[in-house]
Every structure is written in C-alpha cells, then in structure tokens.
Design a protein around this nucleic acid. Structure first.
Length: 185
DNA sequence: CCTGTGATCAGCT
DNA sequence: GCTGATCACAGGC
C-alpha cells in the first residue's frame, strides 16, 4: 500500500486523501471532503508569508497545521510540499467509523451525518487542539491509511472564503452522505 | 429551501 | 478596531 506523498502539490494531495482513513487516538473515519490551499492562493493562510500562526505550513510536509477559526473551532490541515513552500489541505469532513460513541459524546450530537460534517465539527469530534499543531501524521496520536481501492472523486468551489472563490479546490467522495454540503454537478 | 445573528478570539492593520 | 478556511439556532417562504 502506497503512502500519501505530502511532497506533492496540495491540489494533488487533497484529491488523493479522499477515501483515506484518519484516526486521532483511534477515533475518526474515512475522509470524504478536503480543500487545497497554496502559497500563491489569496484565500490561504500562507499567502501573506510565514507568521507565528502559520509557521507549521512552512515547515516539513506530512505534519498537522491546526488553527482556531472564529474564536471557537479548531480546524485540522495536512501540510504539503517541500519545506518552506506554505501549502496545506483542510480536512473538512469524515464518514464516522471508529469511536463513534465518544465522538457523539464530545459533540452532543446523535446524528451520524452531522458528527464530522465540517471542519469545526470534525475538530470537536476528534478533540483537535493547538497541542497537535506541527505533529507528524505518521506517528501517534495520528493514524492515516490511504484508500484501499479506486475512489470516485468530485470537486467544486471552496466554502466559506471571500477570495479566489471560483477555484474548484474542494474535493469530495462521490455520493457520500457525510460531506458538509453537497457538490453540484 | 433560504437569510440573519450571536458566540468568541487570534491575528492583523 | 475589524476580519474570519464556522456552527447552531431562529424565523420566513
């Protein structure tokens, strides 16, 4: 089984991550939605260049970049590309597989479809915090397994941004009921 | 289906 | 001071 190659462009990594299994301390599921961000991209946190917050994006690939969104939600990204580039993939939704009872307890949410459908919900379900920022994705508490077989991937515009809104850099597992919002075709 | 709003805070100007 | 890679909930159609 081939590993995910995080030295590739965030666009390629975002597509390849669909169907992979992500666990944090044994809790998680199948990645069904991602978004790519890049240094050349005005919507990216890395666009203005390195800062204290986005430092992980400019560090080695294959690590986590975690940030606090709207003062409330911890969001998880995977850093891609060569060191110093400043690119990443936002993990936006999972199909819950492991530790479902614990995720439901953390989120006080009994609807499986809403358990990890969105970056903030996913962060809460997997107990993502700043403590994971910069951590390697191939070591505990993370576990990442590539998709087993062929995966049908759809794409469309990213969500919740105000710049570069037309770039189709959001990817999803076709027909999945666990995405944060449907993909138009 | 849709739109509006409060929550809550790090980072930036 | 303002913005934002969000969410939950309320209300209107």
């Amino acid at each position: 089984m081939r590993d995910i190659d995080f030295s590739r462009k965030s666009l390629q990594v975002a597509r390849r991550l669909i169907g992979a299994t992500l666990l944090v301390d044994g809790v998680g599921g199948i990645i069904v939605e991602t978004e790519a961000y890049d240094r050349t991209d005005p919507a990216s946190h890395s666009f203005p260049g390195p800062t204290a917050r986005n430092a992980a994006m400019f560090g080695p690939p294959g690590r986590a970049y975690v940030y606090l969104s709207h003062g409330i939600h911890w969001c998880l990204n995977f850093v891609c590309r060569e060191q110093g580039h400043g690119a990443g993939v936002l993990i936006r939704a999972l199909e819950p597989i492991a530790g479902i009872a614990l995720m439901m307890k953390r989120r006080r949410q009994r609807d499986l479809r809403l358990l990890c459908a969105g970056p903030g919900r996913l962060g809460q379900a997997l107990a993502i915090t700043r403590a994971l920022n910069g951590k390697r994705l191939d070591e505990p508490p993370f576990s990442l397994r590539p998709a087993a077989g062929r995966v049908r991937v759809v794409c469309g515009p990213r969500i919740g941004i105000s710049k570069a809104v037309d770039q189709p850099w959001r990817f999803g597992l076709a027909e999945s009921r666990y995405v944060s919002r449907p993909f138009r075709r």
